[in-house]
Design a binder for these strands. Structure first.
Lengths: 209, 209, 209, 209
DNA sequence: TGATAACCGAGACGGTACGTCCTGTCTTGAG
DNA sequence: CTCAAGACAGGACGTACCGTCTCGGTTATCA
C-alpha cells in the first residue's frame, strides 16, 4: 500500500534541485521564514510547485536540505582540490584552552554571517516545533560537529588537561550551549570575549581552587 | 484623526479574555502551534475574531500572554493564601551545589510536564523567528528567572563559594543553557543526573585541580 | 448535519454579486467557456474566490444566474417605467402565421447578437452534460418562453386557425426546435427566410392538401 | 525544418488505439466528460500519455473517433457477414408516415441505450462549445444520417406523398430536431407516441385542411 | 431613564497560500 | 522509430486562514 508510488530519483532534474535550493535560501534570507512560501520558492526557481512537492514534504524539509547543501558546498570550497578530503577536526596544539577559544571564535563569525543567519534561525525554529525535522537536523548537522569537541576533549584527557572522570559529551555543552542559546533566543550579545570567558569558566570552574 | 482610536480597556470582557487564554493553550497543546489558528481559537472560545484582533496583535502575542497568565496562576496556586506574596528566590542553605541542583531538578520537572511543554515550545519557536516577541518573552519570563540565579551566585561570592572575579550572568549559563538546549533542540535526554552533573562540572571545572 | 452552515444571505454584498455577473459574462464572451476560470472571474470582479464559492457551486451555476440576470435587466429596460409590468405574450393580430414569423425573426436577431451568443452557448453546453443545471435552465428560462407559444396556439385553436386535437406543447417544437438545433449544433444557417419557411411547413404540413 | 515531423502512421500500434478507444468510452460513461481526463484514459488503456497526444489533438478528438468507431462496430455487427455491406437507407414501403415512424422509433431506442448515451451527450456538449469539433461531428456523423431522410422525402415527392415545392433538408427538421432537442436539453420525455405525433403533425400540418 | 457609545458574537469580505490534479512537452530506456 | 513511463513547467482547482469590515445585540456610563 505504497503512498502514490514514489518518484524515480534517477530521472530527477539536477538543475531544478539547484534552482530550488538557491531560491529557498535567498527567499528566506530576504523575507524571513514565514513569508518564504512554497509558491514563492517555485516561482523564483522557475519550477512547478509539483516539482517541490514531489521531492520534499514541507517547506522545512526543503530548507533543511538546502542548508545541508550550503554547508557541503562551503566545505568543498575550503578543501584543497586533488587531495583526499581529510576528516575535519579541531586542531590540537597541545593548548586546550587556546584551541577551544579558536574554534568558538570561528563559530561566532559564522553565526554573525548574514548568509547563514536567516536559514539557520528558520531551521532552528521549525525544529523546535517539528520533532521529525529536528532529528534529521541534529543527526546530520549538529551532532557531527559536537563530536569534534568530544574528540578534542578525549585527547585532552589523555594528556591530563581534562579530568579522566569527565563525560566529554556533557562537558562540551558548558561552552557550546550558552553560545547557542544566546544566539537562538537573543538572551545576550555574542563576542570573542564572551566565548573566551566561557572556555575559562568551564575549564577552571566557578569555585575557587 | 487617530489611526484606530485605541480600545477602552476598562470595558474589556474578562470572561472573553479567560476563554481566549484557555482556548489558545488547549488548542496549541492538542494541535501544535502551526495548526492552532486565530479562527480556531476564536471559535473554541466562543468569541468573535475581532475580539482577538482588538486586544492582541498576533497569534504569538495571544499565546505569550496566555502563557504568562498560566505561570501566574500556577504561582498563586502554590502561594499560601492570605499572605503577602514574598519575592521568589532560590533558597540559600549555604550549600551552593545542593541549592542549584534542587532548582534545576524542579526545572526538569516543569520541562517534562505535558501541560507546559506544548505552549513553551510554541513560544520558543515563534521567538526564534520573531525578534519582537522574543524580546518580550525574554524580558518578562526568562530574564527574571535567570536573575534569581544571579542573586544566588552573588551571595555565594560573598561566602567565598564562588570566585569573586566571576561574572554571575555568564556563569549561570554554564548549567542553565545546556539544559535549555537539550530541551529545545532535543539534542539529548534530560534527567536529574544530567543536571546534577552540569552543576558539578560548572563549579569545579573540567581541568584537574 | 448541515453542510458547513449555510451563509447568511441577508448580509450578502450586492456590489460583489453584480461585479461577478459582469466579469463572468464578459470573460465567457471574450475567452470562451473553458478558458473562463473561476479564478479569472474573481480577479476581474475584484473579489475573493471564496466569495464565489460561498454563493455558487460551480462555474456553470454562476453563469446561469448571470445570464438570468442579464435577461431580467434586458426585460426591465424594455418595460415602460411607471407602468405595471404586463405579462409578456406573443402578439395576437389574428394572423397566426405572421405572428409566429415575427416572434421567430426576433429570436433569430437575439441568437445572432454577440452579447448573448457566448454565454448562451456556454450554458447550453454545460447543460447537456449537467442534468441539475439544465433543470434550472429549462424551468427558469426556456419553458416560460415556450409557454408563450402554447398560449398563442391555444388562442389560435379557439379561432379555428389550428386544429383542436393538436397538442400545442408538441406543436410549437415543429418550428422552435429546428431553429434551436441549427444554432446549437451549427447544422445549418439561420435566417428570416429559414424561420418563415419553418412556420409555413408546420402550419400547412408537408403532404399535399 | 518541419514543425514536429509528423508521426509515421504505418508504424502505429493497433492494440494501443483499440485500448484507448475502450478506455475513453468507458471512462466517459462512468465518470462523465469533465472527469474523464487524458491521464485517466492513458492509465486505464495502459498507454503513455504521449501516445495519445501523438495521434489526437484533444480529449474531444479522441472521443469523437472512439464514438465513430463504436458506431461502425455496431453497424458491422448488424450486417449479414459474407455479404457486401449495402448502403444504409430508410426503407421505402410506400407508406411515408409508417416508414418515418419506424426510423424514429429506432432512434428513440438508441438514444435511450445507456451504452450510447454518455458519449453522445459528451460529444454534443463539447460540440456546442468547440466549433471545429462540431464541424467534424456533423460532417461525419449527423449529416450522413440526415441525408437518409432527404432521400426518403425526395422519393416521397416523386410519388406525390410530399408537395414538390418542399425543401426536404428543412422538412426533415420538423420531426428530427424536436426529438434531438428533447434529448439534448431534457425539455421533455421521449417515447414512440411522441415521435409518432411529430410525424403526423409534420405531414398534415397544424392548420385544418 | 433614556441616549449613545463602546464592546461583543458572528461572519462576509478581498486576499494569499495551500496541496492536488491535470495539461501538454520532454526525456529515458526497452523492443 | 514507436511505445510505456513519468518528470517537468505551468496553471486552475477548491479549501483554509488572514486581517478588515459591517451587522445587530447587549452593557454601561453619561445627560
Amino acid at each position: 500500500m505504497a503512498k502514490k508510488t514514489a518518484p524515480d530519483s534517477t530521472r530527477r532534474s539536477e538543475k531544478s534541485r539547484r534552482a530550488i535550493y538557491d531560491a529557498a535560501l535567498s527567499l528566506v534570507s530576504e523575507a524571513g521564514y514565514q513569508k518564504a512560501t512554497i509558491e514563492g520558492i517555485a516561482a523564483r526557481a522557475g519550477v512547478g510547485k509539483q516539482t517541490i512537492y514531489r521531492w520534499w514534504s514541507s517547506k522545512a524539509d526543503v530548507l533543511l536540505e538546502a542548508f545541508l547543501d550550503l554547508q557541503e558546498q562551503a566545505a568543498e570550497a575550503v578543501a584543497v582540490p586533488g587531495q583526499e578530503p581529510e576528516e575535519y577536526a579541531i586542531p590540537d596544539t597541545g593548548d586546550l584552552a587556546a584551541d577551544l577559544k579558536n574554534v568558538l571564535r570561528a563559530t561566532v563569525d559564522e553565526l554573525l554571517d548574514p548568509k547563514f543567519e536567516a536559514p539557520s534561525r528558520a531551521l532552528a525554529a521549525a525544529g523546535v516545533v517539528d520533532a521529525r525535522l529536528t532529528e534529521e537536523f541534529v543527526a546530520k548537522l549538529l551532532e557531527p560537529q559536537l563530536q569534534l569537541y568530544v574528540q578534542r576533549l578525549k585527547s585532552a584527557q589523555e594528556t591530563g588537561a581534562v579530568r579522566p572522570d569527565i563525560d566529554p559529551r556533557i562537558a562540551l555543552e558548558l561552552f557550546v550551549s550558552p553560545l547557542a542559546q544566546r544566539w537562538l533566543q537573543r538572551t545576550g550579545p555574542i563576542s570573542y570575549d564572551y566565548t573566551d570567558t566561557l572556555v575559562d569558566y568551564a575549564l577552571h570552574g566557578l569555585a575557587p581552587r
